[in-house]
Simulated scan of single mutants.
Amino acid sequence: MEIRRGPIPDAAELIRYREAHPDAPAVILHEFQAQGAHRRAREETCLELERRALEASILSERLGVACGLAIAMVGFGCATFLVAAGHEAAGTAIFGLDAGALVSAFILGRTRTGAPGRSHVLERA
């Protein structure tokens, strides 16, 4: 019984393989190199997918903030117009609702994204 450490046979075992077949050590070492190259390529692919997912998440968050700002500005503009036109109650109500929605979106958005266990990157299977 022999115990081997590492993914390839040691020198003595490679010599025995060469005695059985002259090309065996070269084939074994070539297969080891091919497996390592394949593993590295797969790891690079996973890292690239994780990078893309992170970039997409960041873009999505930025677009959400930009859209929220645009909607809030339209609401504040409408409220200002209503107050200037003499409809103080309606303008104040729209302003309050707009400000309340904006504050709640940022507060709830921060607590949900800060929740433990949520990650922006894909987890490896």
Rank of each mutant, 00 (worst) to 15 (best):
R118K: 12
R42P: 04
G100R: 02
L82T: 05
P116F: 01
V83M: 14
A105I: 02
A85K: 12
R124K: 15
A85Q: 09
C67M: 13
G91D: 00
L63Q: 13
L54G: 00
A34I: 07
E43K: 05
A125I: 11
E88T: 15
C78A: 15
V74I: 15
G36D: 10
A101E: 03
A93N: 04
F95N: 00
G64I: 03
L82I: 04
A90G: 01
V65D: 12
A53R: 01
A125Y: 08
G114R: 10
V103S: 00
L63Y: 07
R51Q: 09
V121N: 10
G86Q: 05
R42C: 06
S119R: 13
A66R: 14
R112E: 06
T45C: 05
A99Q: 00
C46T: 14
R118N: 11
F106T: 07
T45P: 09
A85D: 07
L82N: 02
L97G: 12
H87C: 05
A115T: 11
C46W: 15
R118T: 07
G96E: 00
R62S: 11
A115V: 05
L82Y: 03
A70V: 08
L82Q: 00
T45N: 13
Q35C: 11
V65Y: 07
E88G: 09
C67K: 07
G64Q: 12
A41M: 01
I58F: 06
A99L: 09
A89H: 08
T45D: 02
L49M: 13
E43F: 06
G75L: 04
G75E: 00
T80W: 11
F106V: 10
A37E: 15
L47G: 05
E55W: 06
A115K: 11
L102W: 10
L63D: 12
M73V: 10
L82C: 07
L63H: 11
V121E: 15
G96R: 03
V83D: 04
A34W: 06
T113L: 15
G68R: 03
V74C: 09
E44A: 02
R110F: 09
L49S: 10
R110T: 09
I58E: 09
P116C: 03
A105M: 08
R112S: 14
C46F: 15
L69T: 12
L108W: 04
T92R: 15
T45Y: 09
S60P: 06
E55Q: 10
L97F: 14
E43T: 12
A125W: 11
L122Y: 05
V74Y: 06
A79W: 01
C78T: 08
A79N: 00
E88C: 10
D98F: 00
G91C: 01
